[in-house]
Design a protein around this nucleic acid. Structure first.
Length: 589
DNA sequence: GCCGTTTTCGGCCCGACTGTTTTCAGTCG
């Protein structure tokens, strides 16, 4: 079993990056069909629910071929990546074109053919070279290029340097909704909708797709371009405009006629993979499908609503969060024909009854326990757990045993006061206990046993090896007082990588020890992320969705967590804080 | 290179817009 030994530490994201580089390299050399094959494989690897290295250790090359879009050829390449860190074709192609593909591709408007030309003619290898060449006016002299292409490249580089490309869901959603409100006020606008990855609630957003339904496209585009929030116009046509807002967000606007509303909504919501799969099915059934509708010959047979399109294709309606071509279409077809397993009945956006991670001014929160409780009641919650940080997290003024006991008394007093005032919200005694390097906790069991709910979390030693980190977290889950594992992978979106954790083991142990895994809804965390949530659902491990609020207004994070749960195919029953207080408490250890 | 309600061979989604052209390639979603 040579494959057991000496695996290079390549994670899914790194493998996906190399496969996607292969796609570009083949495209640069005008190889047909391979680019799409590699790109598809890269997407599945990036979204795969398990660490591919672990999958390979367990099941070998045959296991790798279980990844959608990965056949014999690419499985072999992945094996090479895992065992040797590279593979022949990759080395050869890189030798021919030794350029920084990922950073060049990130520039808006730059694709494989441009990169190829830049290398051949100007020996441009990276973003730095590109910027210099553009500033020196060398790009506009290339065949097929001109002054405008050169300026576009410079703007693209500037944008990348400012933003790093993608914005967290929470921020993009907020800005997009403001825009939606502004547009809906235009007189000639009949309907507005946010589409794209934002409608699917992906954790980060490249740009906003805004659909506008109107009979007067010229007038509406004119009004839109005159909005004070529009800073720069990249392009405008009769049905499509592309702008950058003052807040840095890039927006694609499509103007849609009423009869095509559903087709356009479907088309621009994506994902691309979901669309491609739908269109293939449409073709098989003798239709043609585009953003204007579903057509039999020249006759439009559906398009006004998404539902009627799906029905014509003999599938049930799929919620936007499911549309990633990861099994939802098969499930929708089965459901339409009355066969199981059906699509999940996703947890709804108003299904949460509690929040199990709330910090207060006892540590690093902004508001008092009482303020947080009253705000929770306003949000329609029935219970919250106060989970201030514990002592080993010195920078947050963490609580020790003595302080925790005092806080418990205060919570008793407050609960009594709230009852007298006729309030319904109940405050649970909790803590966000630190998991120390060896998996033990920084608060004594005797005190933990007096709390209603105990959350444990990793806040230090992020760099342990896979086996050490997994063992550490499992040890904490085995503690009979630990009810919830908070933000299990510790990642910060666009800032900090997740800790090395064997999630298959963590999920199995969570089930075994009756430890709940948290979906932390804080916009910078969204941890667990969607693919792990889906794995928990499949394995029957239980979860909660928490805001991790450090201030009253942060309960508004909860819908972001619900969105991730929906992307992970979670139903109400999978998320324990959809239960009433009594039911919830009965589920704890 | 992948994949199968047309298939183990022969296909592989579709349209808008831009820039530099004068009929189209490249990029994007």
């Amino acid at each position: 079993m040579t494959r057991q030994a000496n695996l290079k530490q390549l994670d899914n994201a790194q493998i996906a990056n190399i496969l996607s580089e292969m796609a570009v390299l083949y495209a640069m050399h005008h190889v047909e069909f391979k680019p799409r094959a590699y790109e598809k494989a890269a997407e599945s690897v990036a979204a795969f629910h398990e660490d591919i290295g672990i999958l390979y250790k367990r099941e070998g090359i045959v296991g790798l071929q279980k990844i959608p879009g990965v056949g014999k050829g690419i499985a072999f390449h992945i094996e090479q990546l895992l065992t040797k860190g590279s593979f022949e074709e990759y080395r050869e192609l890189k030798a021919k074109t030794p350029v920084q593909i990922e950073e060049l591709m990130a520039v808006e408007g730059v694709g494989p053919q441009t990169i190829s030309m830049l290398w051949e003619r100007l020996k441009i290898k990276n973003l730095n070279d590109l910027e210099k060449a553009a500033r020196a006016g060398k790009i506009q002299k290339l065949p097929g290029f001109g002054k405008k292409s050169q300026e576009k490249i410079l703007r693209g580089i500037e944008f990348l340097q400012q933003t790093g490309g993608r914005k967290p869901l929470g921020i993009a959603l907020h800005h997009a909704r403001e825009l939606e409100i502004a547009v809906v006020k235009f007189k000639e606008v009949r309907k507005v909708a946010i589409a794209g990855s934002l409608r699917r609630r992906k954790e980060t957003i490249g740009d906003v797709d805004l659909l506008i339904c109107t009979d007067k496209p010229e007038k509406v585009t004119e009004q839109f371009l005159a909005l004070p929030s529009v800073r720069h116009v990249f392009g405008k046509g009769t049905t499509k405009i592309n702008v950058r807002l003052r807040n840095g967000l890039e927006v694609d606007v499509r103007v849609i006629p009423e009869e095509s509303w559903g087709a356009a909504l479907n088309y621009f919501t994506g994902s691309k993979a979901h669309n491609v799969a739908l269109r293939k099915i449409a073709i098989k059934k003798g239709y043609k499908m585009n953003e204007y509708g579903l057509f039999k010959g020249k006759k439009m047979v559906a398009g006004k609503t998404e539902k009627e399109i799906y029905e014509k294709l003999e599938m049930s309606y799929m919620e936007p969060e499911l549309r990633e071509d990861t099994g939802e279409i098969d499930a929708a077809i089965r459901e339409f024909h009355g066969e199981k397993p059906w699509l999940p009945k996703l947890i709804g956006y108003s299904d949460l009854k509690g929040d199990l991670q709330v910090q207060t001014d006892w540590t690093d929160g902004k508001n008092s326990i009482e303020e947080m409780a009253l705000a929770a009641e306003q949000m329609g919650l029935e219970y919250i757990a106060i989970t201030d940080h514990t002592k080993s997290l010195a920078m947050t003024n963490g609580t020790d045993e003595e302080k925790l006991l005092r806080q418990m008394k205060e919570i008793d007093t407050l609960n009594a006061k709230l009852r007298l005032q006729g309030k319904k919200v109940c405050i649970l005694k909790g803590a966000e206990v630190n998991i120390l390097k060896d998996g033990s906790l920084d608060i004594a069991d005797e005190v933990l046993s007096q709390l209603d709910v105990v959350g444990a979390a990793v806040h230090t030693h992020f760099n342990l090896s896979l086996s050490e980190q997994t063992a550490r977290v499992v040890a904490a889950m085995k503690n009979p007082h630990v009810d919830i594992l908070f933000h299990p992978t510790g990642r910060l979106i666009n800032k900090r990588k997740p800790i090395e954790l064997d999630m298959e083991v963590v999920i199995a142990k969570a089930k075994e020890t009756k430890t709940i895994l948290e979906i932390n809804a804080s916009p910078e965390r969204l941890d667990l992320k969607d693919n792990f949530i889906r794995r928990c659902v499949e394995r029957g491990a239980r979860m909660v969705i928490d805001s991790d609020a450090h201030a009253m207004e942060q309960y508004a994070f909860l819908p972001l967590g619900i969105a991730q749960a929906r992307r992970g195919w979670a139903e109400k029953k999978d998320i324990l804080n959809t239960f009433s207080l009594k039911e919830f408490l009965s589920q704890l250890k």
